[in-house]
Amino acid sequence: MNIFRLLGDICHLVAIIVLLLKIWKTRSCAGISGKSQILFALVYTTRYVDLFFTYVSLYNSVMKVIFLASSYATLYLIYVKFKATYDFNHDTFRIEFLLIPCVILSLLITHDYSPVELLWTFSIYLEAVAILPQLFMVSKTGEAETITSHYLFALGAYRALYIVNWIYRYYTESFIDGIAVVAGIIQTILYADFFYLYITKVLKGKDFKLPA
């Protein structure tokens, strides 16, 4: 463990909690893409299948449980409890166009063809693009609630910090996982446009609105 990865995990946790609080406090999931949340739940489910038979550390197991529980709780809030506030008209990204390429790619490029490893690889590729429905929805509505922009910033920062963690691990442990690094870089690049808007607008107290 290193400070970059710890900060990354904390950002990730903050993002998930901010989203849950936003929906719970405002009793509304307006502006939130349920499809992205479905993809995230799928990412954690396929990545943490080893939760019950591979023990890395208490921290690792606890965080996995938190990520799994919170992602399904978010799905429950969006699709059950506050279903009436779900903006399905704007949440129209075709997630099969993400799922199918990720399945194919995880069969073509993977470290190992064991079921657990294939699921892990699939989850890495899927996580890289899981935010697209949300970014697509923000681009369609042209704006996002400030709290939602904080959620997106924290979520983007988490994987950006993981890139720093991989650089650190490369130089200190000569550890490198090409699949995770390439997917992580793509994932972070997808946030670039959002990061720019967030820093130039939200941090200056303005609303998060895309230039018309």
Partner: peptide, 10 residues
């Protein structure tokens, strides 16, 4: 064993 198949990151 290829250490990549033992993922210690979240």
């Amino acid at each position: 064993e290829d250490d990549n198949t033992h993922h210690d990151e979240l």
